[in-house]
């Protein structure tokens, strides 16, 4: 089936990802339209022409999702330790972390805290795509588990916006262990009867998909988000086959039965609030 499909579409990240150009104007990577930057920002960072959902940083996500000023961050100061003493090329993991912190302004690839969504109290976790591709290391795992603990303690629903390239290889097996750790904590949450809404945004791949992202009681995805286990490039290189169009998009996963719903960014708040009303206590 896959061999027959011959289209110009060649997967998500086979081409180098186009960075958003600075300035007043920007080009949508999906429909190539020139867009006025502030118009896009007003439209919740969604392309007004083609509905392409741009990647947004954690702070913006929190602004869009939580009631104004309601986000109370927990463990905001937690920073990664270099347990392995990881060195690559002529840099070290520590230097890389500092550079990422400078670049993205975030301390780690996840922020957690208590917040209100349309007046419903939740424990909110948001991943930061600009910090080392939102990869999961010990800190992300720990923060996630603390968020779950908080949700159990205060019987609040847990909402996590996933956006990650997977496990962080600079932390070796420690980051792999975070998959087991977060999943085990979610098992506790499940037994405590908590509601866990997992929001999958572009991109959610690797170890994050294969642990807490896919374990939500309810799985919501943003339109067109890349969601999968192995990255498209890895698959294309391993099996030497052209990938079918729309492979690993949210729509593809919905069709295969792995998602509950695909929700536009502007409806995310109301949709989550509705779900909490149905299931929350």
């Amino acid at each position: 089936m896959a061999k027959e499909t011959k289209s110009k579409w060649n997967g998500f990240s086979l081409k180098p990802r186009k960075e958003m150009p600075e300035g007043l104007w920007m080009r949508c990577p999906a429909c190539e339209h020139m867009l006025y930057r502030s118009a896009v920002e007003e439209n919740l960072n969604v392309c007004p022409e083609c509905n392409h959902h741009f990647r947004i940083e954690a702070a913006t996500r929190i602004k869009y999702l939580a009631d104004e000023g309601s986000f109370q961050e927990v463990l905001g100061d937690l920073t990664a330790e270099d347990k392995l003493g990881f060195k690559f090329r002529d840099t070290t993991y520590k230097q890389r972390l500092k550079a990422e912190e400078k670049k993205s302004g975030a301390k780690e690839a996840m922020r957690i805290g208590k917040a209100f969504i349309k007046g419903r109290g939740v424990v909110l976790g948001v991943m930061e795509p600009n910090f080392l591709m939102g990869s999961m290391g010990a800190v992300v795992g720990e923060k996630f588990c603390v968020a779950v603990d908080k949700a159990i303690e205060e019987t609040l629903p847990l909402v996590v916006v996933c956006c990650s390239g997977g496990a962080r290889m600079h932390e070796g097996v420690v980051s792999l262990g975070q998959m087991a750790k977060t999943s085990a904590t979610l098992a506790k949450f499940d037994e405590a009867g908590g509601l866990y809404i997992s929001v999958l945004t572009d991109p959610t791949t690797g170890g994050v998909t294969a642990s807490f992202a896919m374990l939500g009681d309810c799985l919501i995805a943003e339109p067109g988000a890349l969601i999968g286990f192995a990255g498209p490039r890895t698959i294309a290189e391993t099996i030497k086959v052209e990938l079918p169009e729309g492979f690993q998009t949210a729509e593809f996963l919905l069709e295969r039965g792995f998602l509950d719903m695909i929700v536009h960014r502007k409806d995310l708040r109301s949709e989550i609030a509705r779900l909490i009303d149905y299931c929350g206590r």
């Binding site: 085990a184 294969a210 807490f212 374990l215 286990f229 698959i235 492979f247 690993q248 295969r256």
Partner: peptide, 23 residues
């Protein structure tokens, strides 16, 4: 890492295993 594996939910299968094996 294959097309079929992704279609059948490789990530979900592993995630569920992690959770269930832990209890």
């Amino acid at each position: 890492p294959g097309i079929g594996a992704e279609q059948r939910g490789q990530a979900q299968a592993i995630a569920v295993n992690l959770m269930e094996m832990s209890r």
